[in-house]
Design a binder for these strands. Structure first.
Length: 220
DNA sequence: AACGCGGGGCT
DNA sequence: AGCCCAGCGTT
């Protein structure tokens, strides 16, 4: 593993994020486990802008798991209707509220909740509780498969290992947030490499811009 | 690990 | 109408 490149990326993205943090209500360090969980639960397959529009109102209507428990699936669905997936999500949310007095804090236990997979479990634990664990979704995969194209493994388990190795010590929360913002702003599906702090050592940029062999570029 | 799926977005 | 897709569920 190219440790110097790893370190350059770590330092680079943390620096980049200083001036490019997106601010959302659920990113307040004071947000409760429930508040962060609700946000992450809504954010899967849903643009952050959409979530931002219903989130404050949802929280005032449902400030706790108990409030969810005292409601019903139809009302919940109404409250999150603009997000889409309202039936699936309202049902799962109600089930969670019915089965838990309070949310578990261990990612493994969070993973047990209905409609909560590895991504939501890890993101919740990291952002709400500062758990030092990697998050890995399509966006993170896109970044790493470009920057570390020659080292980024195929198998999910090895990817998790690799992603864990990249975490800066004690700064998982800041780093993971930076990854998401970086994926949204720079390392987009159509990447803005000219604006990217990593373009001097990114394998993708090197292979597409240098064009040493002239045999044409590839698209991921 | 591999596959299936509901549903939202884009064409 | 049809295709693509991310993330969760199931096997």
């Amino acid at each position: 593993m190219d440790e110097s490149r790893v370190e350059r990326f770590r330092v680079g993205i943390l620096e980049w994020s200083e001036d490019n943090v997106r601010r959302y209500p659920w990113r307040d360090p004071e947000s409760s486990l429930y508040e962060v969980f609700v946000a992450e639960f809504f954010l899967t397959q849903t643009p952050a802008e959409n979530v931002a529009q219903v989130y404050p109102k949802f929280l005032s209507q449902y400030p706790s798991l108990e409030a969810v428990r005292r409601s019903d699936v139809a009302s919940l669905a109404d409250a999150i209707e603009p997000l889409g997936f309202q039936n699936i999500r309202s049902e799962a949310l109600f089930t969670i509220a019915s089965e838990y007095d309070s949310l578990p804090t261990d990612p493994t236990d969070l993973r047990e909740l209905p409609r909560v997979g590895e991504y939501v479990a890890n993101a919740t634990a990291c952002f709400a509780l500062d758990a030092q664990i990697p998050i890995l979704d399509r966006n993170v995969d896109r970044i790493y498969s470009r920057v570390f194209a020659d080292e980024w493994p195929e198998s999910p388990s090895e990817q998790t290992e690799f992603a864990a190795h990249l975490l800066p010590e004690g700064e998982a929360r800041k780093y993971n947030l930076a990854l998401l913002d970086f994926a949204a702003a720079i390392c987009t599906p159509e990447p803005r490499c000219s604006e990217c702090f990593a373009n001097e050592f990114c394998m993708y940029y090197q292979s597409t811009s240098a064009g040493v062999d002239g045999s044409g570029e590839w698209s991921e």
